[in-house]
């Protein structure tokens, strides 16, 4: 580790803890990759009624929310990144 790294890099212990927290959220959620794929396809189907979305670029995952809710509790949250190709109104 160089001197500069000392200031910007997290310790490996912290990295381990952060990675664990993330992996446990998806382990505990019992959302298998198949179910995630089905959720993804359903999202595409619903949204496609209104906008044209880039289904290739769509990414969903279950992670820990940052606790911005009213009770400020962090819990599992579904994050979706859905690129829109064309937002123009149809017809």
């Amino acid at each position: 580790m160089s001197f500069g790294d000392f200031f910007k890099r997290k310790s490996s212990g912290e990295t381990a803890k952060d990675r664990l927290k993330l992996v446990l959220v998806s382990d505990r959620s019992a959302c298998s990759p198949e179910i995630m794929e089905r959720i993804k396809n359903d999202i595409i189907e619903v949204l496609s009624k209104y906008v044209e979305i880039d289904s290739e670029g769509l990414d969903i995952k279950i992670t820990q929310s940052e606790g911005e809710g009213p009770e400020d509790k962090s819990g599992p949250a579904l994050f979706a990144n859905i690129p829109i190709r064309n937002i123009r109104q149809r017809n």
Binding site: S12, G13, A16, L20
Partner: peptide, 17 residues
């Protein structure tokens, strides 16, 4: 020694997780 230099999770970290 590793916990002190940040290269191992502490028992408290493991309990928290």
């Amino acid at each position: 020694d590793m916990v002190e230099r940040g290269d191992m999770m502490s028992a408290e970290d493991v309990v928290e997780v």
